[in-house]
């Protein structure tokens, strides 16, 4: 069984005939320059954007899955966290349980896991950008969905929280769930099981990080010269 199948997915002017298969229990990174179609691909995979081609979750065509069931099967984290109303952090995270009949199960653990217990009663529209992003990740985790689709989960986070999210992602994967996340910092790619490179809306390469992130390809896709050099290395204590 595959966790996610994208078969010839297309969106006019944004994504061209992308096919991709993710096995359960894998941590997959989606990389590419700005405007290469990463967010679009994640939205298609999450069933939030209509497009050509087919999407399957756990071998089921998306069209056969009722909306409420989708809320339990996959979680999507948007790139931007905008909140107009002052819901408390706890109540936003609890929204992750909507498709489970609002049973509030596991909310406290998720809050604690993302270092949000101290902020749980604060209004979410008064938080910093990074804190808001952690709230969105917590809400996605609260769904307990086996497929997690995260759009730039690390971009707004400080270095410690970014490393913690990567550790968390690894745990989730070990528990048999599947993560597809877009990221810009290629230095973090060594944590991933697989890297998918998008370029101008097309799938350019997919495979092991060491196999895919070659100097030649990085030069072609990003227009940069890659060098391996010793430098500052940051790890959790």
């Amino acid at each position: 069984m595959n966790a996610l199948d994208l078969i010839g997915v297309s969106v006019p002017n944004r994504l061209h005939d992308v096919s991709l298969t993710l096995a359960p229990g894998t941590l997959v990174g989606l990389v590419g320059p700005n405007g290469s179609g990463k967010s679009t691909l994640l939205q298609i995979a999450a069933g939030l954007l209509p497009g050509g081609g087919a999407v399957r979750w756990s071998d089921r065509p998306l069209g056969d899955i009722p909306v409420l069931d989708r809320g339990r099967a996959a979680a999507w984290v948007p790139q931007e966290a905008h909140f107009e109303f002052g819901f408390s952090v706890r109540s936003v995270v609890a929204q992750g349980r909507f498709a489970h009949g609002d049973d509030d199960r596991g909310i406290e653990q998720v809050l604690s896991r993302l270092d949000l217990l101290g902020l749980a009663d604060r209004p979410v529209n008064r938080l910093s950008g990074g804190e808001r992003h952690r709230v969105l990740l917590a809400r996605a985790l609260a769904t307990e969905a086996p497929l997690q689709l995260w759009d730039e989960p690390l971009a707004a986070l400080d270095v410690r929280h970014a490393l913690e999210v990567l550790v968390l992602a690894d745990e989730i994967k070990r528990a048999g769930r599947t993560l597809l996340l877009s990221l810009h910092d290629l230095r973090l790619a060594h944590c991933l099981d697989m890297v998918v490179i998008l370029h101008e809306g097309r799938l350019r390469a997919a495979g092991l990080p060491t196999a895919v992130l070659t100097p030649a390809l990085l030069r072609e896709v990003f227009g940069v010269r890659a060098e391996i050099a010793p430098g500052l290395v940051l790890k959790l204590p």
Binding site: Q43, A46, G47, L48, V67, L68, D69, R70, G71, R72, A74, A75, W76, P78, H82, F83, E84, F85, F87, S91, V92, Q95, G96, F98, A99, D102, R139, T143
Partner: peptide
């Protein structure tokens, strides 16, 4: 009321959480 909570924080987010 409850689906309105989710909608008021974003349509795509609400959709992904199981709101029609």
């Amino acid at each position: 009321g409850r689906p309105m909570d989710l909608l008021s924080l974003g349509a795509l987010e609400a959709q992904s959480l199981g709101v029609d």
